[in-house]
């Protein structure tokens, strides 16, 4: 069982999200994450779905997805050929004396500061899952107040378009 990411192009209308999400639950597939957004043509959306599955299950999931009428195309985003990113917004406790240190760490992670108050900071970082998790670990030192995290979105490298 591996973690994998599927990119699914679907028609953009009501009911499609529940149809796809329902497919996973009723067939007993493991779904880790799901993100949806419209694409260049507003008639379509792209779903990026994180799953935990072996090769056989992945094939079954892709076939069942393809069978759905609103599904246009399904590809697996293989780690070596794909760009996969998550976004994290994190509110940390940041008294004046800690700000410099937090800012230095944020720079290392190419995180940006979205908001600042007397004793808190809100930071934004994008990257692969491991980078996000490592950044969260560092922030624990200062006191995590709130976390909002997207699931993965991604696409294949190179000039091919799907």
């Amino acid at each position: 069982m591996n973690k994998r990411i599927l990119s699914v192009l679907v028609e953009n209308h009501a009911g499609v999200l529940s149809r796809i999400a329902g497919l996973f639950s009723r067939r007993g597939y493991n779904i880790d994450s799901l993100s949806v957004g419209t694409v260049e043509d507003p008639a379509y959306s792209r779903m990026t779905i994180g799953i935990t599955a072996d090769d056989w299950q992945t094939e079954q999931i892709m076939k069942q997805l393809n069978k759905q009428v609103p599904v246009i195309k399904v590809v697996e985003l293989l780690p070596d050929d794909s760009l996969i990113r998550e976004i994290l917004i994190i509110k940390v406790s940041a008294p004046v004396e800690a700000r410099r240190e937090i800012k230095d760490l944020a720079d290392l992670y190419k995180a940006s500061v979205l908001d600042i108050t007397q004793d808190t900071m809100v930071l934004e970082v994008t990257g692969q899952q491991k980078k996000i998790e490592s950044f969260i670990d560092h922030m624990k030192t200062y006191g995590l107040l709130e976390i909002a995290r997207s699931s993965s979105v991604g696409m294949q490298r190179g000039s091919s378009v799907f």
């Binding site: 009501a14 009911g15 529940s18 149809r19 329902g22 009428v69």
Partner: peptide
């Protein structure tokens, strides 16, 4: 449409 989804080839509202 929600309730019949698992049992249909396709649904429309």
């Amino acid at each position: 449409t929600g309730a019949s989804e698992p049992f249909t080839k396709h649904t429309y509202l």
